[in-house]
Amino acid sequence: MKRYVFLIAYEPGGFEQAAAEVQQSYFTAHEAFSTYVAEHGNELSSAALADTDTATTVRHLDGAKSVTDGPFVETVEMIGGYYDVELPDMDHAIAAAAILPPAYAVEIRPTITITA
């Protein structure tokens, strides 16, 4: 099994502004995704994220902690949620990502193990 994090990008407000049946299709797609992952691997965790206007970024600048309002990178698309899953390989990861709502762009990132 390989572990992948799926980062979901979509336009802010897209879901809230959608018609009820479109919103329902989102739920259906996420359920189908979870079913697929359960059949072929494991879903470790997932979350929908609040909009980036609620984000806070912490950095260190010249050795001092710096806290700023906003995401670490300003883009048109934002990360709206994530899945952390285990699947056999990239082909399964692509198949799973394709199940999610078509309005999404899904970035598949393999995880790595850092050893001391």
Binding site: K2, Y4, L87, P88, D89, M90, D91, A93, A95, I108, P110, I112
Partner: peptide, 14 residues
Amino acid sequence: VTAGIPFAVPSVED
């Protein structure tokens, strides 16, 4: 290797 691109024949639909 890192992304798990498989040494495999794809499914019929793919």
